[in-house]
């Protein structure tokens, strides 16, 4: 497992580096605009949030990019390990990525908000909930993308299947009750808005993506990655 992680980190370090640089650049420019140009630089942080959300749809595919290019998927199949470990290693690197990206985004978001006037107090509880739900939401997409990418080398098929599966999962999950983990923020609520985050729904999504991860693990064990 250690060597699979080593390999996956080595292969994906440039993706990670590029994303960190983009988030940091947008964040720093945003802070500069907010503090020195009296412009709402937080827009740039929101842009990087949207970017990471979009990226997570294809992050699993990106993790197979090098192995697809050099036929190394065949080499992966010769390794004397259970093949679900090959997937797990990639899933762990994706988790690391999500933590890293969202930590940066939340940091720049917070610095920008400090300058904003007339906002309610931003408690650690609000930030932690936001941080956790963001990581879990994009990680759900990453895991689905990874699972699909392990099944086929065909790029259009991957993207089509990823989007199709996500829609199917979202629809199917409407019929399954969420665990009761609603976090309510009275300090952000008003007569018109009830501010709360349904963490139960987010966790339900994540669990469903892991169900698919397990199914694809069984598949690659038999058919190869």
């Amino acid at each position: 497992m250690k060597w699979l992680l080593w390999k996956d980190f080595k292969l994906s370090k440039w993706w990670i580096f590029a994303n960190v640089m983009i988030i940091s650049a947008l964040g720093i420019i945003g802070v500069y605009l907010t503090y020195f140009r009296d412009f709402p630089g937080i827009i740039l942080v929101l842009l990087s949030m949207a970017g990471i959300l979009f990226w997570s749809l294809f992050s699993g595919t990106a993790h197979y990019f090098n192995e697809d290019q050099g036929n190394a998927r065949e080499f992966l199949n010769t390794l004397p390990v259970q093949r679900w470990k090959i997937l797990l290693s990639k899933a762990l690197i994706l988790l690391l990525e999500n933590f890293l990206y969202w930590s940066l985004i939340v940091l720049f978001f917070y610095i920008n908000l400090l300058k904003a006037q007339g906002l309610p107090p931003l408690t650690p509880r609000i930030f932690l909930t936001f941080y956790l739900s963001a990581i879990l939401s994009t990680y759900t997409l990453s895991v689905i993308s990874l699972s699909i990418s392990s099944l086929t080398k065909d790029m259009p098929a991957r993207w089509f299947l990823t989007i199709l599966l996500m829609m199917a999962v979202l629809i199917a999950l409407q019929f399954i009750p969420s665990p009761p983990f609603r976090v309510y923020f009275p300090e952000l609520s008003s007569d018109y808005i009830k501010a709360e985050v349904d963490l139960g729904y987010i966790i339900k999504n994540l669990v469903s993506s892991f169900v698919f991860f397990v199914i694809s693990s069984f598949w690659v064990e038999r058919r190869g990655v």
């Binding site: 390999k7 036929n71 065949e74 080499f75 010769t78 004397p80």
Partner: peptide, 18 residues
């Protein structure tokens, strides 16, 4: 996977990490 541990497979294809 225990079988793979005892086998060295040398592929005709260029299958290592470039």
């Amino acid at each position: 996977h225990k079988i793979r541990a005892m086998i060295s497979y040398i592929s005709e294809r260029d299958n290592l990490y470039p």
